[in-house]
Design a protein around this nucleic acid. Structure first.
Lengths: 193, 193
DNA sequence: TATCTAATTAGATACTTATCGAATTTGGAG
DNA sequence: CTCCAAATTCGATAAGTATCTAATTAGATA
């Protein structure tokens, strides 16, 4: 049961300082000192709170020189906020499919040529999901992609980018909103990877 | 800003015992002792937690003889869980319309006959909302109504029940799902009442 | 009215945690 | 290598709170 996860999400979010940080990051990424200034708090306090927000996965960071920028993962936030609504639901058997790591490895070996291209799209659902998850590794969390970019990226594996792109969206690896694409949090994937 | 409200909601929900109570009540109403037994806790502890759940409006109670049954307000839970997602949004100017109490009173006096029937449906938006909110008093929180029941209820005020029913749904006083109707939490109403 | 049951209140204890100052670490830049 | 700025870790303090027992209240029934 992911009951603990739900509890922890709300415990973390149920703090005025952290809600204010979330509000700030919603407008765009910020670095630690900037957050501290805007909230009238000291850097150690920000580290403390951001650590908790990272722990529940709704904030991630990227480094630029000496400065670390913190980003809000809106999709993950949305997903986590809604988890409480499906507490007792039968559809709670996520991940739908559990596959042994060694099986994943052999599937990948079978379907990809030595040059890294995909020989064919598997027709078996399980194998298809493994291949889809494998290929999506290069897509970054929190980044918005144009359809063109996605297509270009997929071409390194296979010429039929349209099918693969559609499979990604259909199987909740990605999210599509007015022609832009975004990686979904792994919790939404139909398979562990 | 309802920032405090959002914080408080998550603070209250971010506790394992209270999440377990929510899960229990999701399956149907229960009285205090029953909850205490199921969770292996003492009655005072349940009182403590339920008080908090009531305070944020997701639980309400109804008395039957000496026993008090606690109910989960699912719609309110849903609404509150999603509030965090609209934190910085412009649409945050709820309630859309603020009306003085004395104005409400005179609107009600003008539009309702001494026998309690509605003389006519106001065309002015503000007055219409006041009248709609006034008539919905008799609809109970958390109860599911068939369309027929709603119609019968409205007829005590006005013969054109279809229009009034439609107005209630359009203005978020009620929620409709596969031909059943349910009162929305007051936070969703376009007016205070 | 007296009595019974469920619920609540009050007070105590133990545990958690938000915040800060001081010290340390990290990763460039000169 | 040395210096610098940003971030983190550590330890202390103060505030908050989940849980219990014991005592009290609220409502119904006889």
């Amino acid at each position: 049961m992911q009951l603990d996860k739900v509890v922890n999400f709300h415990k973390v979010v149920g703090d005025p300082t952290r809600i204010r940080i979330i509000s700030l990051l919603k407008q765009g990424p910020l670095h630690g000192q900037a957050i501290a200034n805007k909230l009238g708090l000291k850097p150690p306090t920000i580290t403390h709170h951001v650590a908790k927000l990272k722990q529940i996965g709704i904030v991630y960071q990227r480094r630029d020189k000496n400065t670390i920028y913190f980003y809000l993962d809106q999709k993950k936030l949305e997903y986590s906020a809604n988890a409480i609504l499906q507490l007792g639901e039968v559809t709670n058997v996520r991940p739908e499919m559990s596959v042994e790591d060694k099986d994943k490895l052999s599937i990948v070996k079978n379907f990809f040529a030595p040059d890294g291209t995909l020989k064919q799209i598997p027709s078996q659902r399980k194998k298809k999901l493994v291949v889809l998850a494998y290929m999506i590794r290069g897509i970054e969390t929190g980044k918005l992609y144009e359809e063109k970019e996605i297509n270009e990226y997929i071409k390194q594996f296979h010429e039929d980018y349209a099918t693969i792109r559609r499979e990604w969206v259909m199987n909740h690896f990605m999210y599509r909103e007015n022609n832009q694409y975004e990686l979904n949090p792994k919790e939404m994937w139909p398979i562990e990877f």
